[in-house]
Write a protein that binds this DNA or RNA. Structure first.
Length: 687
DNA sequence: AGTTAACTCATTTTT
DNA sequence: TGAGTTAACT
């Protein structure tokens, strides 16, 4: 391994091997390179690979990190614990959760299941209020509050009500042997706090902990990290206070402020050279972030040259904006050096804005992908299958039970299940546990009891076989037999109106099985970090880790297409050509008029960082567009450009939009009108 | 039990 | 504009 391609600041960060280290890594300053090199250096200087941990926020970041580490240091990278915060939490709990009364086979409930659980516990079935509860409770949990503490600090009757609900919700989770995502941080934290032997064990095991995107950590993650590294404090936190855009979900910059206080020996290193963007782009970025108060002042610079001026594009309305974005991509791609579709990205504030851009790109026959959106594992058919897996792992997982027993329909209706539920509650059993209760015959018909128990036996049988299904081929056979058994393909065909849709869902199922089998064969990386290496695993082992995943990492090699993404989802990525759309006052920054006065300042600061993140995604060219009118609900209102546009200091950094592009956009607009009238004509002829 | 018709209401989102 | 949910119906 060589250090010669690192600049001085990067070398400092890599060579500071003992004690606490904070690396303030500006956008595009090579932070992943620093992390991977530091992993390598730690191992090189004698630390066992398995005692090094690198923690990220997303599975994607973890996979990338693992890939780059393997590239740099080879085989030893496989031993390094590279995983998300949550996967680390899972590992802590599976190993030592017994100290908290948690079985090693506990289930992880996704947010939908938590939501229905909350509806169950609460007094309303209204989705909006349930979501509100969920959000509040998650917030409290991310601050490390127990239900009792939440109740104590609640300031309104509404909050007290929610806190009581939280207690109730928690009891139910314990009964299921289930945890939600926040628990994956909160429970290990309490475990390490309350059990000195466990925290000593982990402190000894981990020789150095590196944390990526440190500015995104919340209060519980800070404490967890603190307990993991002990008083020695052998850790490297890498982050950028200017890219903190997840405050609304509990991330707090206090974690950066506290670090020098909690660790007086903290070594602080700033990475200020940007290797990504031109000076013109970077200047715009610096100007936008400038007004924010600075925790650790830094100023990014680039040696890539001045580059193209940042363009500001004003549009009449949102559809016009989409057409011009599409036209810009076409004209840029046609100009000079050859460019790929994948070199372009359109970034916007909110998901729904994607639709207009999709239309425009489709009309122009430009291939694209919408990043974010619904994840593979959120699809109903995948969740159906996962509910069975979960039941094999943990019979007491009631949400999984409910889903599995009703998909496909097997003649067991609401009434029957309600009776079963009553019985389970009465005798403090899980639904599965109640299946074979002697009292069942008293409340249900023999027929109902029969089908319930048949389901139970079926689950037990599958569970037993899944445990002994090891390796890729065996898993394939098992899964296809199982799907045939429960008649899942037929279920999809019956449930779906169009054959086409049913076929595509069935295709998802097949993809998923293929992927599961691949993991059993050990040929796919274990992004959840349940176990390293590439040996064969049983189907049950594999099933244990999937609740943490959201994408099928393997088949997601970026195809050559234009990216549409929210600003939030764009963090950490980069493109040669970026279009920042909808940069309107009221959208970016998002409406600030209704917030309480003291919150407005903090809100604008975060919005400013969001704009900063957007700008710094661009390597070579950046266009910022806004509309003179925009839709708000049902009505169309006059709109202003975002204050951030003025703050980028236009006169120095920008130039007028190329008139030819305007012409092209005009032409595109005509094409659009034609398309619309055609559509209308078609619709009319249909009726 | 399952389907349709009216009705509401819209940031950011990973795990 | 559309998705998602509820209530009422068959």
């Amino acid at each position: 391994m060589s250090v010669d391609r690192l600049n001085l600041a990067q070398q400092d960060a890599v060579n500071h091997l003992r004690g606490p280290c904070l690396v303030l890594a500006g956008a595009g300053s090579g932070k992943t390179r620093v992390i991977t090199h530091k992993i390598g250096r730690l191992i090189q200087t004698g630390l066992e690979a398995k005692r090094v941990a690198a923690i990220t926020f997303t599975n994607k970041a973890a996979s990338e990190m693992r890939e780059r580490a393997r590239h740099l240091i080879g085989k030893a990278a496989g031993e390094v614990l590279i995983c998300t915060f949550h996967a680390l939490g899972v590992r802590l709990l599976r190993e030592d959760g017994a100290t908290m009364g948690l079985k090693p086979q506990f289930s992880i409930l996704d947010s939908d299941e938590c939501l229905s659980l909350l509806k169950d516990c609460g007094t309303t079935t209204d989705a909006a209020t349930a979501r509100q509860w969920q959000w509040t409770i998650s917030r409290w949990k991310s601050e490390g509050l127990t239900p009792e503490e939440a109740l104590a600090q609640a300031t309104s009757e509404g909050e007290r009500e929610t806190a009581r609900l939280m207690a109730h919700y928690h009891e139910r989770l314990v009964a299921y042997q289930g945890v939600d995502f926040d628990d994956l941080i909160g429970m290990p934290l309490r475990m390490l706090r309350n059990h000195a032997s466990v925290s000593e064990k982990w402190q000894t095991r981990l020789g150095h902990v590196l944390v990526d995107e440190y500015q995104d950590t919340n209060a519980t993650q800070y404490e967890l990290l603190k307990l993991l590294v002990g008083t020695e404090g052998n850790f490297t936190a890498v982050g950028d206070d200017d890219q903190s855009i997840y405050g609304w979900r509990g991330a707090t910059l206090d974690n950066l402020k506290r670090l020098p206080l909690d660790y007086p020996r903290l070594k602080i290193i700033k990475l200020e050279q940007n290797y990504r963007s031109t000076s013109a782009i970077l200047r715009a970025a610096n100007n936008v972030i400038g007004p924010n108060p600075k925790l650790f002042p830094k100023r990014l610079f680039s040696e890539l040259g001045e580059g193209e001026p940042v363009r500001v594009v004003d549009c009449d309305h949102e559809m016009h904006e989409a057409e011009r974005a599409s036209a810009r991509i076409q004209s840029l791609r046609a100009s000079s050096v050859q460019k790929e579709w994948r070199d372009f990205a359109i970034l916007y504030r909110a998901n729904h804005q994607a639709r207009l851009f999709e239309q425009a790109l489709r009309r122009a026959q430009i291939p694209y992908k919408v990043s974010g959106g619904q994840s593979f594992f959120d699809r109903a058919e995948i969740k159906d299958l996962c509910s069975w897996f979960r039941l094999w792992i943990n019979e007491d997982d009631d949400p999984a039970f409910m889903r599995a027993i009703t998909t496909p329909k097997r003649g067991i209706g609401h009434q029957t299940l309600a009776q079963l539920g009553d019985l389970a509650t009465k005798y403090h059993l899980s639904l599965f546990g109640a299946l074979f209760s002697h009292s069942l015959g008293g409340v249900l018909s023999a027929r109902a009891v029969g089908s319930l128990q048949e389901f139970g036996r079926c689950v037990n049988d599958l569970q037993h076989r899944a445990r002994h299904t090891i390796g890729e081929e065996a898993a394939k056979v098992f899964l296809s037999d199982w799907l045939k058994d429960i008649g899942y393909e037929k279920y999809l065909q019956d449930a779906e109106e169009s054959d086409k849709l049913a076929a595509s869902r069935w295709n998802n199922v097949l993809d998923f099985c293929e992927w599961m089998a691949g993991r059993c064969g050990g040929r796919i990386d274990d992004a959840a970090g349940a176990s390293g290496g590439s040996e064969s695993k049983s189907l049950l082992d594999v099933a244990q880790t999937i609740s943490l995943l959201s994408t099928l990492s393997e088949r997601e090699q970026d195809p050559n297409v234009v990216t549409l993404s929210t600003l939030h989802a764009s963090k950490g990525l980069e493109w040669p050509h970026v279009i920042l759309a909808g940069v309107n006052e009221g959208l970016l920054p998002f409406r600030t008029d209704d917030a309480p006065a003291d919150a407005v300042v903090a809100r604008i600061e975060e919005e400013r960082r969001l704009m900063y993140v957007g700008i710094t995604r661009a390597r070579q060219t950046l266009a910022v567009s806004w509309t003179r009118r925009r839709k708000k609900g049902r009505e169309i209102i006059a709109a202003q450009p975002s204050r951030f546009i003025a703050e980028m200091a236009l006169d120095q950094t920008t130039a007028r939009e190329d008139p030819r592009a305007k012409l092209k956009a005009l032409r595109a607009e005509f094409a659009l009108k034609a398309a619309v009238t055609e559509q209308a004509a078609q619709a009319a002829s249909k009726d």
